[in-house]
Design a protein around this nucleic acid. Sequence first.
DNA 1: AACCTGACTTCGG
DNA 2: TCCGAAGCCAGGT
Length: 104
Amino acid sequence: MTSNSRQRVYEIVKLIPKGKIMSFSQIGRLTGLHPRTVGNILTTMQSEDLEKIPWHRVVNNKGYISSIKLGLKGKIQENLLRKEGLKIIDYQIIDYEKYWHQID
DNA sequence: AACCTGACTTCGG
DNA sequence: TCCGAAGCCAGGT
């Protein structure tokens, strides 16, 4: 079910602390969804959810802001992450390995 | 039911 | 190390 998967993804993303990041594949493992599906869910978030869920803390496996493909949203994500103290050059988070949020 | 698509990953050269 | 191709599969049409 779509909304069911969506809620599972939201629950995980909500757990990411400020200044930390998670990858699509990490979230995929925790929710049992394919990483691409996680991305699909995040692209189709309603504006009401965008305010409540720290969607900007989700990046790809290489610490790259892949939402740049969507246009403006990518720039917004970059700005939000910078506000949380991350250094980013050309949508690539510097030293991204240090910022993974691990859930065991 | 079949086919298409994508905020992804992995692998081979 | 860097790129492109191949694999992936849930959702939408």
